[in-house]
């Protein structure tokens, strides 16, 4: 057969194969897409619910700097905030979900969603023994115990939790559910503040001031 006569057949066969492939894949995609979406949804849900123990449901909140979720209880009340945040670890990004209590701003739990740290060393950040250290904290000033041989991975998680705690001030503007709670507290009226409360307030103002300077590009 001469070369020029073959040309249409080449195009035809390859086109047919591609079309057949596309049809098969459309069919398979149709079958699996809902399942894959469900798996992704389930993952987020599990993560949010595991860091906000009292929550039974959650909803995502628009936020500029963080992936922010509200944990809701049965009566749709906000019982906690879950913040997904990531930073660079030793070998790749570490993705962490941090749960915060609404009232006290204490860390309720820390869950590592994904990472690529070295197995046996940095990968131990997922262990309860390490993650548990963050529970009940309001700051990272008191040092956490670092995993031996995995300083960088440990400090990366520490940095995430620190960022989230410091950024917690911002969330108030972004979460409609919280405004009411805070407004309620203001209505309590004048009263004597305990020493701890004064210190807390001062720290809050300082970190707020830091955020403002950070965002305005200052040193």
């Amino acid at each position: 057969m001469a070369n020029d006569k073959i040309q249409p057949r080449l195009i035809l066969v390859l086109t047919l194969i591609t079309i057949a492939s596309a049809i098969v894949l459309t069919f398979i995609d149709d079958l699996t897409a809902p399942l894959i979406a469900e798996q992704a949804e389930k993952r987020v849900q599990e993560a949010v619910l595991s860091v906000v123990p009292e929550a039974v449901d959650f909803e995502e909140v628009e936020s500029e700097n963080f992936e922010l979720f509200q944990g809701l209880d049965e009566s749709e009340e906000v019982v906690g905030i879950a913040v997904q945040h990531q930073t660079q670890g030793y070998t790749g990004p570490i993705d962490v979900m941090v749960g915060l209590d609404v009232d006290t701003r204490q860390v309720t739990a820390v869950e590592v969603l994904s990472h690529t740290e070295t197995p046996g060393l940095g990968a131990r950040i997922v262990e309860e023994q390490f993650r548990g250290q963050f529970e009940g904290r309001k700051s990272i000033e008191e040092e956490i115990e670092i995993i031996a041989g995995a300083t960088i991975s440990s400090e990366a998680v520490e940095e995430i939790v620190d960022d989230v705690i410091k950024g917690a001030q911002d969330f108030e503007d972004e979460m409609p559910g919280l405004e009411t709670i805070i407004a309620d507290e203001d209505d309590l009226g004048a009263r004597d503040f305990s020493e701890q409360e004064v210190v807390d307030a001062e720290q809050g103002i300082q970190s707020l001031a830091k955020i403002v300077t950070d965002y305005s590009g200052g040193e």
Partner: peptide
């Protein structure tokens, strides 16, 4: 399949099956 386009044809067939595996395993 004509000889001239056998490699692209094989690759399309292989890629189809790989995508099936990919989607099914993720689901």
């Amino acid at each position: 399949i004509p000889d001239e386009v056998r490699i692209p044809s094989f690759i399309v067939v292989i890629a189809t099956f790989v995508t099936i595996v990919d989607l099914v395993s993720r689901a």
